[in-house]
Amino acid sequence: MKKILFFTYLPRHLKKVLPLINLLKRKTSLEYLLIIMTQEEKQLAEKYELNYCMLDEFTTVKRKYNYDLAWGIEPLINSIDILKPDLFIAIEVNYILRNAIRYCKQKSIPNLIIQHGTPNLKSLHAFAPFEGETFAAWGQFTKDFLIQNGVKESKIIVTGGMNFDRTLSIQRSKHELSKVLNIDPNKQWVLFTTQGVGAGNRPSLDEIRQGVKSATLRAMKCNNLQLIFQVHPDQSINDIKQFTDEIIDHKALIIKYEDTEELISVSDAMITFFSTTAIDAIILGKPLLLINLVDKLDYFPFIKMGAAYGAYKVEEINEFFEKINMNNENLKCMTQRAAEYVNYKNDGKALDRIKGIIYNKLGVSDFE
Protein backbone atom coordinates (compact mmCIF):
# COMPACT_ATOMS: atom_id res chain seq x y z
CA MET A 1 0.00 0.00 0.00
CA LYS A 2 1.37 3.42 -1.00
CA LYS A 3 1.46 6.11 1.71
CA ILE A 4 0.71 9.79 1.11
CA LEU A 5 1.74 12.27 3.79
CA PHE A 6 -0.21 15.55 3.94
CA PHE A 7 1.03 18.41 6.09
CA THR A 8 -0.79 21.67 6.86
CA TYR A 9 -0.12 24.37 9.43
CA LEU A 10 -3.13 26.66 9.02
CA PRO A 11 -6.91 25.95 9.11
CA ARG A 12 -7.43 27.51 5.68
CA HIS A 13 -4.76 25.19 4.23
CA LEU A 14 -6.51 22.15 5.66
CA LYS A 15 -9.86 23.33 4.29
CA LYS A 16 -8.42 23.68 0.80
CA VAL A 17 -6.79 20.26 0.77
CA LEU A 18 -9.84 18.54 2.31
CA PRO A 19 -11.50 17.58 -1.03
CA LEU A 20 -8.31 15.81 -2.09
CA ILE A 21 -8.01 13.90 1.19
CA ASN A 22 -11.65 12.82 0.95
CA LEU A 23 -11.10 11.61 -2.59
CA LEU A 24 -7.90 9.69 -1.87
CA LYS A 25 -9.10 8.03 1.34
CA ARG A 26 -11.62 6.07 -0.76
CA LYS A 27 -8.77 4.50 -2.73
CA THR A 28 -8.08 1.11 -1.15
CA SER A 29 -4.54 0.87 -2.57
CA LEU A 30 -3.55 4.16 -0.88
CA GLU A 31 -3.13 5.23 2.72
CA TYR A 32 -3.31 8.89 3.63
CA LEU A 33 -1.46 10.32 6.63
CA LEU A 34 -2.36 13.80 7.84
CA ILE A 35 -0.13 15.84 10.13
CA ILE A 36 -1.41 19.16 11.44
CA MET A 37 0.07 21.84 13.63
CA THR A 38 -2.56 24.05 15.28
CA GLN A 39 -5.51 23.55 17.60
CA GLU A 40 -7.83 25.14 15.01
CA GLU A 41 -6.84 22.46 12.49
CA LYS A 42 -7.47 19.81 15.12
CA GLN A 43 -11.04 21.05 15.52
CA LEU A 44 -11.53 20.91 11.74
CA ALA A 45 -10.02 17.44 11.45
CA GLU A 46 -12.36 16.12 14.12
CA LYS A 47 -15.34 17.89 12.58
CA TYR A 48 -14.68 16.17 9.24
CA GLU A 49 -13.72 12.85 10.86
CA LEU A 50 -10.17 12.78 9.50
CA ASN A 51 -7.42 10.57 10.86
CA TYR A 52 -4.61 12.87 11.92
CA CYS A 53 -1.50 13.28 14.04
CA MET A 54 -0.45 16.45 15.80
CA LEU A 55 3.08 17.57 14.93
CA ASP A 56 3.88 17.37 18.68
CA GLU A 57 3.86 13.58 18.46
CA PHE A 58 7.16 13.62 16.59
CA THR A 59 9.31 15.46 19.13
CA THR A 60 9.95 15.60 22.85
CA VAL A 61 10.52 19.36 22.67
CA LYS A 62 7.56 21.44 23.83
CA ARG A 63 6.37 24.23 21.59
CA LYS A 64 6.30 27.78 22.96
CA TYR A 65 2.91 28.63 21.46
CA ASN A 66 0.25 27.29 19.09
CA TYR A 67 1.72 28.66 15.86
CA ASP A 68 5.40 28.02 16.61
CA LEU A 69 6.96 27.65 13.18
CA ALA A 70 10.57 27.63 14.37
CA TRP A 71 9.72 24.71 16.67
CA GLY A 72 7.96 22.86 13.84
CA ILE A 73 10.98 22.19 11.64
CA GLU A 74 12.42 19.32 13.70
CA PRO A 75 9.18 17.34 14.25
CA LEU A 76 8.22 17.68 10.59
CA ILE A 77 11.56 16.24 9.47
CA ASN A 78 11.19 13.51 12.11
CA SER A 79 7.72 12.63 10.81
CA ILE A 80 9.10 12.07 7.33
CA ASP A 81 11.77 9.76 8.72
CA ILE A 82 9.33 7.81 10.89
CA LEU A 83 6.40 7.51 8.47
CA LYS A 84 8.48 7.02 5.30
CA PRO A 85 5.83 8.27 2.85
CA ASP A 86 5.82 7.41 -0.84
CA LEU A 87 4.60 10.96 -1.56
CA PHE A 88 4.70 14.20 0.45
CA ILE A 89 1.98 16.79 -0.26
CA ALA A 90 1.67 20.34 1.05
CA ILE A 91 -0.44 23.27 -0.03
CA GLU A 92 2.28 25.90 0.20
CA VAL A 93 6.07 25.98 0.01
CA ASN A 94 6.87 28.45 2.74
CA TYR A 95 8.45 28.63 6.21
CA ILE A 96 9.15 25.12 7.53
CA LEU A 97 7.82 23.52 4.34
CA ARG A 98 10.86 24.60 2.36
CA ASN A 99 13.02 22.59 4.76
CA ALA A 100 10.70 19.60 4.44
CA ILE A 101 10.78 19.74 0.66
CA ARG A 102 14.57 19.99 0.68
CA TYR A 103 14.69 16.96 2.97
CA CYS A 104 12.35 14.99 0.68
CA LYS A 105 14.68 15.81 -2.18
CA GLN A 106 17.67 14.45 -0.22
CA LYS A 107 15.73 11.27 0.58
CA SER A 108 14.39 10.88 -3.00
CA ILE A 109 10.79 11.14 -1.77
CA PRO A 110 8.40 12.38 -4.50
CA ASN A 111 6.60 15.56 -3.51
CA LEU A 112 3.80 17.78 -4.73
CA ILE A 113 3.03 21.38 -3.78
CA ILE A 114 -0.52 22.58 -4.46
CA GLN A 115 -1.07 26.32 -4.91
CA HIS A 116 -2.76 28.03 -1.99
CA GLY A 117 -2.57 31.76 -2.66
CA THR A 118 -2.01 34.31 -5.40
CA PRO A 119 1.66 34.92 -6.20
CA ASN A 120 3.01 38.46 -6.10
CA LEU A 121 6.35 40.13 -5.57
CA LYS A 122 5.55 40.96 -1.93
CA SER A 123 5.11 37.25 -1.16
CA LEU A 124 7.65 35.89 -3.62
CA HIS A 125 9.40 34.01 -0.78
CA ALA A 126 6.33 31.76 -0.55
CA PHE A 127 6.82 30.55 -4.13
CA ALA A 128 10.44 30.91 -5.20
CA PRO A 129 13.00 29.56 -5.19
CA PHE A 130 10.98 26.41 -5.74
CA GLU A 131 12.95 23.34 -4.73
CA GLY A 132 10.06 20.92 -4.95
CA GLU A 133 9.45 18.30 -7.60
CA THR A 134 6.07 19.49 -8.90
CA PHE A 135 3.92 22.60 -8.42
CA ALA A 136 0.20 22.32 -9.24
CA ALA A 137 -0.73 25.82 -10.43
CA TRP A 138 -4.16 27.37 -10.67
CA GLY A 139 -3.68 28.83 -14.12
CA GLN A 140 -1.45 30.36 -16.76
CA PHE A 141 -1.17 33.58 -14.74
CA THR A 142 0.59 31.70 -11.93
CA LYS A 143 2.75 29.74 -14.36
CA ASP A 144 3.89 32.93 -16.11
CA PHE A 145 4.72 34.54 -12.77
CA LEU A 146 6.73 31.56 -11.53
CA ILE A 147 8.73 31.25 -14.74
CA GLN A 148 9.50 34.98 -14.68
CA ASN A 149 10.90 34.48 -11.18
CA GLY A 150 13.20 31.59 -11.90
CA VAL A 151 11.05 28.47 -11.50
CA LYS A 152 11.70 25.82 -14.14
CA GLU A 153 8.74 25.41 -16.49
CA SER A 154 9.13 21.62 -16.31
CA LYS A 155 8.19 21.71 -12.60
CA ILE A 156 4.86 23.47 -13.16
CA ILE A 157 1.64 21.67 -14.08
CA VAL A 158 -1.43 23.84 -14.65
CA THR A 159 -4.41 22.10 -13.07
CA GLY A 160 -6.85 24.77 -11.93
CA GLY A 161 -7.62 25.29 -8.25
CA MET A 162 -9.55 22.69 -6.26
CA ASN A 163 -11.06 25.50 -4.20
CA PHE A 164 -12.46 27.06 -7.37
CA ASP A 165 -14.11 23.76 -8.34
CA ARG A 166 -16.34 24.33 -5.35
CA THR A 167 -16.89 28.00 -6.18
CA LEU A 168 -18.23 26.97 -9.57
CA SER A 169 -20.63 24.45 -8.01
CA ILE A 170 -22.23 26.58 -5.26
CA GLN A 171 -26.03 26.68 -5.50
CA ARG A 172 -27.04 28.69 -2.43
CA SER A 173 -29.76 31.28 -3.16
CA LYS A 174 -29.80 34.90 -2.06
CA HIS A 175 -33.16 34.41 -0.36
CA GLU A 176 -31.82 31.50 1.70
CA LEU A 177 -28.81 33.48 2.83
CA SER A 178 -30.88 36.59 3.57
CA LYS A 179 -32.71 34.64 6.27
CA VAL A 180 -29.43 33.56 7.83
CA LEU A 181 -27.98 37.08 7.78
CA ASN A 182 -31.28 38.85 8.47
CA ILE A 183 -30.93 41.32 5.61
CA ASP A 184 -33.16 42.32 2.69
CA PRO A 185 -32.77 40.01 -0.35
CA ASN A 186 -34.31 42.64 -2.61
CA LYS A 187 -31.44 45.04 -2.10
CA GLN A 188 -28.19 44.93 -4.01
CA TRP A 189 -25.52 43.26 -1.93
CA VAL A 190 -22.02 44.65 -2.24
CA LEU A 191 -19.54 42.38 -0.51
CA PHE A 192 -16.25 43.78 0.82
CA THR A 193 -13.76 41.01 1.67
CA THR A 194 -11.25 42.55 4.04
CA GLN A 195 -7.56 41.95 4.69
CA GLY A 196 -5.22 42.85 7.52
CA VAL A 197 -1.87 44.54 7.16
CA GLY A 198 0.30 42.13 5.20
CA ALA A 199 3.76 41.66 3.75
CA GLY A 200 5.45 44.88 2.71
CA ASN A 201 2.83 46.83 4.68
CA ARG A 202 0.26 46.02 2.00
CA PRO A 203 -2.48 46.85 2.51
CA SER A 204 -1.40 49.45 5.04
CA LEU A 205 -3.52 50.21 8.09
CA ASP A 206 -4.32 53.64 6.67
CA GLU A 207 -5.33 52.11 3.34
CA ILE A 208 -7.65 49.67 5.14
CA ARG A 209 -9.18 52.51 7.13
CA GLN A 210 -9.73 54.69 4.04
CA GLY A 211 -11.13 51.82 2.01
CA VAL A 212 -13.56 50.67 4.69
CA LYS A 213 -14.77 54.16 5.60
CA SER A 214 -15.15 55.33 2.01
CA ALA A 215 -17.20 52.28 0.99
CA THR A 216 -19.34 52.63 4.11
CA LEU A 217 -20.05 56.32 3.52
CA ARG A 218 -20.90 55.77 -0.14
CA ALA A 219 -23.19 52.83 0.60
CA MET A 220 -25.20 54.97 3.04
CA LYS A 221 -26.35 57.10 0.13
CA CYS A 222 -27.95 54.14 -1.64
CA ASN A 223 -31.26 53.03 -0.13
CA ASN A 224 -31.41 49.94 -2.31
CA LEU A 225 -27.94 48.71 -1.34
CA GLN A 226 -26.60 46.53 1.48
CA LEU A 227 -22.87 46.71 2.18
CA ILE A 228 -21.45 43.55 3.77
CA PHE A 229 -17.97 43.30 5.24
CA GLN A 230 -16.72 39.72 5.33
CA VAL A 231 -13.84 39.88 7.81
CA HIS A 232 -10.62 38.03 6.98
CA PRO A 233 -9.83 34.93 9.10
CA ASP A 234 -6.76 36.66 10.56
CA GLN A 235 -8.76 39.74 11.60
CA SER A 236 -11.41 40.31 14.23
CA ILE A 237 -14.79 41.95 13.62
CA ASN A 238 -13.63 44.78 15.89
CA ASP A 239 -10.73 45.46 13.51
CA ILE A 240 -13.32 46.66 10.99
CA LYS A 241 -15.87 48.05 13.44
CA GLN A 242 -13.32 50.53 14.75
CA PHE A 243 -13.52 52.24 11.34
CA THR A 244 -17.22 51.84 10.54
CA ASP A 245 -18.24 52.96 14.03
CA GLU A 246 -16.79 56.38 13.26
CA ILE A 247 -19.83 56.75 10.96
CA ILE A 248 -23.21 57.26 12.64
CA ASP A 249 -26.03 54.94 11.45
CA HIS A 250 -23.88 53.39 8.74
CA LYS A 251 -26.08 50.23 8.30
CA ALA A 252 -23.15 48.12 7.04
CA LEU A 253 -23.16 44.47 8.08
CA ILE A 254 -19.84 43.26 9.55
CA ILE A 255 -19.57 39.49 9.81
CA LYS A 256 -17.33 36.46 9.81
CA TYR A 257 -19.58 34.17 7.83
CA GLU A 258 -18.31 30.59 7.63
CA ASP A 259 -18.42 30.39 3.83
CA THR A 260 -16.97 33.35 1.92
CA GLU A 261 -17.54 31.75 -1.47
CA GLU A 262 -21.25 31.40 -0.73
CA LEU A 263 -21.40 35.11 0.05
CA ILE A 264 -19.64 35.97 -3.19
CA SER A 265 -21.96 33.75 -5.22
CA VAL A 266 -25.12 35.58 -4.07
CA SER A 267 -23.69 39.11 -3.96
CA ASP A 268 -24.23 41.59 -6.77
CA ALA A 269 -20.71 43.04 -6.68
CA MET A 270 -17.50 42.73 -4.71
CA ILE A 271 -14.73 44.92 -3.32
CA THR A 272 -11.34 43.88 -1.97
CA PHE A 273 -7.71 44.97 -1.87
CA PHE A 274 -5.94 41.93 -3.34
CA SER A 275 -7.56 38.99 -1.55
CA THR A 276 -7.69 35.67 -3.38
CA THR A 277 -11.46 36.09 -3.21
CA ALA A 278 -11.04 38.43 -6.19
CA ILE A 279 -10.50 35.32 -8.31
CA ASP A 280 -13.75 33.80 -7.04
CA ALA A 281 -15.55 37.03 -7.99
CA ILE A 282 -14.06 36.97 -11.48
CA ILE A 283 -14.90 33.29 -11.97
CA LEU A 284 -18.51 34.01 -10.95
CA GLY A 285 -18.70 37.06 -13.22
CA LYS A 286 -19.26 39.61 -10.46
CA PRO A 287 -18.44 43.32 -10.94
CA LEU A 288 -15.20 43.72 -8.99
CA LEU A 289 -13.35 46.68 -7.49
CA LEU A 290 -9.71 46.30 -6.45
CA ILE A 291 -8.48 48.99 -4.06
CA ASN A 292 -4.86 50.13 -4.18
CA LEU A 293 -4.28 53.50 -2.57
CA VAL A 294 -0.51 53.01 -2.20
CA ASP A 295 0.97 52.63 -5.68
CA LYS A 296 0.26 51.26 -9.16
CA LEU A 297 1.50 47.76 -8.35
CA ASP A 298 -1.44 45.50 -9.17
CA TYR A 299 -1.49 41.99 -7.72
CA PHE A 300 -3.89 40.66 -10.34
CA PRO A 301 -4.06 41.16 -14.13
CA PHE A 302 -7.77 42.00 -13.96
CA ILE A 303 -7.64 45.80 -14.21
CA LYS A 304 -5.19 45.77 -17.13
CA MET A 305 -7.34 43.16 -18.87
CA GLY A 306 -10.44 45.33 -18.49
CA ALA A 307 -12.09 42.69 -16.30
CA ALA A 308 -12.27 44.70 -13.06
CA TYR A 309 -12.33 48.29 -11.83
CA GLY A 310 -9.44 49.81 -9.93
CA ALA A 311 -9.44 52.43 -7.19
CA TYR A 312 -6.13 54.23 -6.83
CA LYS A 313 -7.83 57.21 -5.21
CA VAL A 314 -10.63 57.31 -2.64
CA GLU A 315 -12.91 59.02 -5.16
CA GLU A 316 -12.71 55.97 -7.43
CA ILE A 317 -14.18 53.81 -4.66
CA ASN A 318 -17.23 56.07 -4.71
CA GLU A 319 -17.48 55.85 -8.51
CA PHE A 320 -17.64 52.05 -8.41
CA PHE A 321 -21.09 52.08 -6.80
CA GLU A 322 -22.42 53.96 -9.82
CA LYS A 323 -21.03 51.33 -12.21
CA ILE A 324 -22.55 48.23 -10.62
CA ASN A 325 -25.76 48.43 -12.64
CA MET A 326 -24.09 49.29 -15.95
CA ASN A 327 -24.66 46.65 -18.63
CA ASN A 328 -21.03 46.55 -19.77
CA GLU A 329 -20.72 43.81 -22.39
CA ASN A 330 -16.99 44.40 -22.86
CA LEU A 331 -16.44 43.97 -19.11
CA LYS A 332 -18.35 40.67 -19.18
CA CYS A 333 -16.26 39.43 -22.10
CA MET A 334 -12.97 40.37 -20.49
CA THR A 335 -14.08 38.92 -17.17
CA GLN A 336 -14.55 35.53 -18.83
CA ARG A 337 -11.09 35.75 -20.44
CA ALA A 338 -9.53 36.75 -17.12
CA ALA A 339 -11.25 33.85 -15.35
CA GLU A 340 -9.71 31.37 -17.78
CA TYR A 341 -6.28 33.00 -17.39
CA VAL A 342 -6.17 32.66 -13.61
CA ASN A 343 -8.04 29.34 -13.26
CA TYR A 344 -7.47 26.69 -15.90
CA LYS A 345 -10.58 25.86 -17.95
CA ASN A 346 -13.07 26.59 -15.14
CA ASP A 347 -14.62 23.21 -15.78
CA GLY A 348 -14.75 22.06 -12.16
CA LYS A 349 -12.19 19.30 -12.81
CA ALA A 350 -9.07 20.63 -11.07
CA LEU A 351 -9.39 17.97 -8.37
CA ASP A 352 -9.41 15.23 -11.01
CA ARG A 353 -6.29 16.66 -12.65
CA ILE A 354 -4.43 16.82 -9.33
CA LYS A 355 -5.53 13.25 -8.59
CA GLY A 356 -4.02 12.28 -11.96
CA ILE A 357 -0.66 13.78 -10.98
CA ILE A 358 -0.69 11.83 -7.71
CA TYR A 359 -1.62 8.54 -9.35
CA ASN A 360 1.12 9.06 -11.92
CA LYS A 361 3.73 9.72 -9.21
CA LEU A 362 2.68 6.63 -7.27
CA GLY A 363 2.21 4.38 -10.28
CA VAL A 364 -1.44 3.57 -9.54
CA SER A 365 -4.56 3.81 -11.69
CA ASP A 366 -8.29 4.38 -11.30
CA PHE A 367 -8.88 0.68 -11.88
CA GLU A 368 -6.93 -0.60 -8.88
Rank of each mutant, 00 (worst) to 15 (best):
K2V: 05
K3Q: 07
T8A: 03
L14G: 09
V17H: 01
P19S: 02
N22S: 12
N22A: 01
E31V: 09
L33Y: 00
T38I: 03
T38S: 11
E40Q: 15
E41K: 07
Y48I: 06
E49V: 09
C53H: 15
D56F: 02
E57C: 02
N66G: 01
D68K: 07
L69A: 07
A70L: 13
A70T: 14
W71C: 07
G72Q: 05
I80P: 15
D86K: 01
F88T: 08
E92M: 07
I96V: 14
A100K: 04
R102P: 06
Y103C: 03
C104P: 15
Q106R: 13
I109M: 05
I114V: 15
I114Y: 00
I114D: 01
H116D: 15
H116R: 10
T118S: 08
P119K: 00
N120W: 05
L124R: 07
A137V: 06
Q140K: 13
F141M: 03
N149Y: 09
E153S: 13
K155L: 07
G160R: 03
M162P: 14
F164D: 00
S169Y: 07
Q171K: 15
R172E: 13
S173L: 03
E176W: 11
K179D: 12
N182A: 11
K187W: 12
L191N: 08
F192W: 06
F192T: 09
T194P: 14
G196Q: 02
G200H: 04
L205E: 15
D206F: 09
R218S: 09
M220C: 06
N223H: 13
I228T: 04
Q230S: 14
H232L: 09
Q235P: 09
Q235V: 02
I237H: 09
N238G: 02
D239E: 09
D239P: 14
T244F: 01
T244Y: 04
D245V: 00
I248H: 13
I248L: 11
K251V: 01
K251S: 05
K256G: 06
K256M: 10
E258P: 14
T260C: 11
L263I: 08
L263S: 06
S267P: 11
D268W: 05
A269H: 08
F273E: 08
I279P: 14
A281R: 08
K286N: 10
P287C: 00
N292M: 00
L293F: 05
L297R: 12
D298T: 05
F300H: 14
F302P: 10
I303L: 00
I303Y: 02
K304C: 01
A308C: 03
Y309A: 01
N318I: 05
E322F: 10
E322I: 02
E322V: 03
E322A: 11
K323N: 13
N327H: 12
N327A: 04
T335E: 10
A339D: 11
A339L: 05
E340H: 13
V342W: 01
A350Q: 02
A350W: 10
I358Q: 00
F367N: 14
